[in-house]
């Protein structure tokens, strides 16, 4: 239990995927202009990251990892190592998952589709999602822990974009130098936010 709490706190605070890894910056900068949209995108990223991390962990641990297919092919599979295709497989899984989820949500949960709808296709190319799956392999997590890790990373990303959207909203009403408004100030604020979050680096629970 405390280990799971550790994974969650690491994903949200100490290893925030946006503020320490700087992944998913493009949609972060583009969408943080609007608070409501940031909320929706943050939710969608959390949702997709949770399930794709779990799914990819299952696939990796039972098919792609070195010697993972022993359960299927017997001892002769001990030398099979498919991990070199994991990048492509992860991308395919993410894209396929997003497609299927979008159709399912549109058909049976129209309200949820109203909230997440526009953002789901955007997420297919969000590098934070792919990053979660790749980090999960490096960390050697089991499928269940990978799911928790995906949720935590997505929540950390959502926290960062919501904070940024609120900050930018305050800036909207103040007289910024024109050359500096928009993307430049967002990058500066991201850097300062990352500096503030560096307080959590190395924190142990």
């Amino acid at each position: 239990m405390s280990e799971l709490l550790g994974i969650i706190l690491a994903g949200v605070l100490t290893h925030n995927i946006l503020l320490t890894g700087f992944l998913g910056m493009c949609s972060f900068i583009a969408i943080s202009r609007d608070l409501r949209a940031s909320l929706g995108l943050g939710l969608a990223v959390t949702f997709v990251a949770t399930f794709t991390a779990g799914l990819n962990a299952l696939i990796y641990n039972y098919f792609l990892a070195p010697g993972a297919m022993v359960w299927l092919l017997g001892d002769s599979a001990r030398s099979i190592d498919l991990s070199f295709v994991s990048l492509i497989v992860f991308i395919a899984v993410i894209a396929g998952f997003v497609q299927v989820v979008e159709m399912v949500i549109q058909r049976w949960f129209p309200l949820l589709h109203g909230v997440l709808g526009i953002f789901l296709p955007l997420i297919t190319v969000n590098c934070a999602i792919l990053g979660v799956s790749l980090f999960m392999v490096i960390k050697g997590l089991t499928p269940f822990r990978a799911t928790v890790y995906g949720f935590a990373s997505g929540a950390g990303w959502a926290l960062a974009i919501i904070l940024m959207a609120a900050m930018r909203r305050r800036l909207d009403t103040s007289a910024m130098p024109r050359a500096f408004a928009g993307v430049p100030v967002t990058l500066l604020l991201t850097g300062l936010l990352a500096a503030a979050f560096s307080a959590f680096a190395g924190m142990e629970f």
């Binding site: 609120a166 909203r169 936010l193 503030a196 959590f200 924190m203």
Partner: peptide, 25 residues
Amino acid sequence: QWAPLPEGAMFSVLLGNAFAPLLDE
């Protein structure tokens, strides 16, 4: 208590600043 830093007041105020606009929203 939990981070490898002796003092956290500086970081805490900056983090508080970061959350302030969201609290107002």
